[in-house]
Computed example of a mutant assay.
Amino acid sequence: MADFPGIIRSPLSQTITHDGITVQVEIYRLEGTEGWTLELVDAEGGSTVWQDSFATDAEAFAEFMDGVRQLGLAKLIDPDEDDIATVH
């Protein structure tokens, strides 16, 4: 994610590879707001954004890691309807 004025990027944002799949984990918030957004960007540039915001960047990252443990990275970047209701 390029740096844009007014967007605060978490130091927890990073590239992660799991089960042969690589994603960019982006955790950010708008300046002057309190909720952190969790977004995954896959190798093709596809984006998965969680609908709910998180109180802290650490909570957002923990949600990502829980999703990887529960569903696997492939399901997080290409969820079916049941997965969306469960994780996002």
Rank of each mutant, 00 (worst) to 15 (best):
K75T: 06
E59L: 13
A2M: 10
E39Y: 07
G67E: 08
T33Y: 07
I84D: 12
F61N: 03
S53E: 10
D52C: 03
I16M: 14
I8C: 01
I8D: 05
V68G: 13
L40V: 01
H88A: 12
S53A: 12
F4L: 11
L40T: 00
T22K: 10
S13K: 11
G35M: 09
E26G: 03
Q51P: 09
G46P: 00
V49D: 01
Q70S: 14
M65S: 07
Q14S: 10
L76T: 11
A74W: 00
F61I: 02
V87H: 10
E26I: 04
T15Q: 13
I16T: 15
V49A: 07
F61C: 03
R9W: 05
A43N: 12
Q14E: 10
Q70H: 13
G45S: 04
E59G: 12
T37I: 03
A74T: 06
I27T: 03
R69C: 02
P79H: 02
E81D: 13
D83F: 03
I27F: 03
D80C: 13
F64I: 00
Q14L: 03
I8L: 06
G6T: 08
P79Q: 04
E63D: 10
E59F: 14
Q70C: 08
F54A: 02
I27V: 05
K75E: 09
W36M: 13
I77R: 15
A2T: 07
I16G: 04
F4A: 15
D66G: 02
V68R: 09
Q70P: 02
A55W: 01
V87I: 11
F4V: 10
I7A: 14
G67L: 15
I21Y: 04
E59M: 15
K75W: 06
A85M: 13
T17H: 02
S10P: 04
V23Q: 00
D19H: 13
L12V: 00
E81F: 08
V49M: 08
I7K: 14
T22A: 08
F4R: 12
V25I: 13
H18Y: 13
D80T: 14
F4W: 09
L40H: 01
R9P: 01
T56S: 12
T15I: 13
H18D: 08
V23S: 01
G72T: 12
G45P: 04
D66L: 04
E63N: 05
I7M: 12
G45T: 05
Y28V: 11
V41Y: 00
I8G: 02
E34W: 14
G20M: 10
M1P: 14
D82C: 04
T48F: 02
G72F: 14
G35W: 05
A74D: 10
Y28S: 13
D78W: 04
D66K: 01
D78I: 01
Q24N: 08
S13P: 10
L30E: 15
D19G: 10
D83G: 02
Q70D: 11
D42W: 05
Q51I: 07
E39N: 11
D42A: 15
P79S: 06
T15L: 11
D57I: 03
R9M: 05
S10A: 09
A58P: 00
D80V: 12
M65I: 07
Q14C: 07
D83Y: 05
H88T: 08
T17W: 01
I16E: 12
T33D: 06
W36P: 09
S53F: 11
E44T: 13
